[in-house]
Amino acid sequence: MFTAMFGSVEQGIIYAIMALGVYLTFRVLDFPDLTVDGSFVTGAATAAMMIVLGYNPILATLAALVAGFIAGCMTGLLHTKGKINPLLSGILMMIALYSINLRIMGLSDENAVVKPNIPLMSSDSIFSQFQSLWGNIGIDQALTSFLKNTLGFQTAPSTWGTILIVLILTLIIKSIVDWFLKTEVGLAIRATGDNKRMIRSFSANTDGLIVLGLGVSNALVALSGALIAQYSKFADANMGIGMIVIGLASVIIGEAIFGTKTIFRTTLAVVAGAIIYRIIYAVALQIDWLDTSDMKLITAIIVILALVIPQLVEKRREKIRKEKRRIQRLEQQRELTQGGNHLA
């Protein structure tokens, strides 16, 4: 159980980068971008393909970032220049990317044009590279003996290096997003999601800002995909299905628990939301009568509840407020009439 949880947290931290991307489009730009399902795989496919071909994993991961950026920009161009509805632009790009991803994975094998998956069992990865440095320090052994001997745990994670490196990476990405949203360009992107007419009247090209915002968002999504591929040691054409909903669930859960007072706090909430989502996922999988494949249904239900419950709560509060005001008014009226009787 503990190791399963530990793995969930590790994965959650990687998925948090994807959730930050979804936050950029869904919340900041107010653009429901479905490209995510495709660009997540594009990132995984690009990184896996390059690693198999013998490129350095860091370079492969950076290439995935660029590929995601391009995919996002394409969605942006479909919407702004092609005047296609945002949802449809994303869906079109997602479908197109499915074929493109098969082609990208096909590049890894000279005997095939397309490939549905790439195993990375024996390949190098960012994590294995870091591990070769980390393993020599001896922190793992110390922590493991502390857990087993002092706290009495039966099992301990095989390494603490992975969680450390993903945590550092995700916090760096979060800080970059925080910084970016406070730059002049970032402010203009936020205003584009908030009030297009206003930002146009301050000489900002909203079309360009939407394209840029979608590009950055999908770059993060693809980065997350590249890391997940290296973490779970495979890339698969179907690994992105439902990714947008998972991203949304993370954003919504995080915002509901930790609030959105400042940008710093909101992005932190999104990261935490992604980790919490993974923990819920792991717990759900422990339940006997649930199957792994039910998880998409559960995710959808989480998002639906997270969207509907706040509305119901608000309605109920409003009703209580109305009732209170009515009683106040009645009392005031009674006092007035009593005053009148007294005079008479």
């Binding site: 970016f180 406070k182 730059t183 002049e184 360009v185 970032g186 402010l187 203009a188 301050f202 000489s203 900002a204």
Partner: peptide
């Protein structure tokens, strides 16, 4: 930033 090109400087 109306009449300058927007860049990666801090807005405030």
């Amino acid at each position: 930033s109306r009449n300058a090109k927007r860049g990666l400087r801090r807005g405030v």
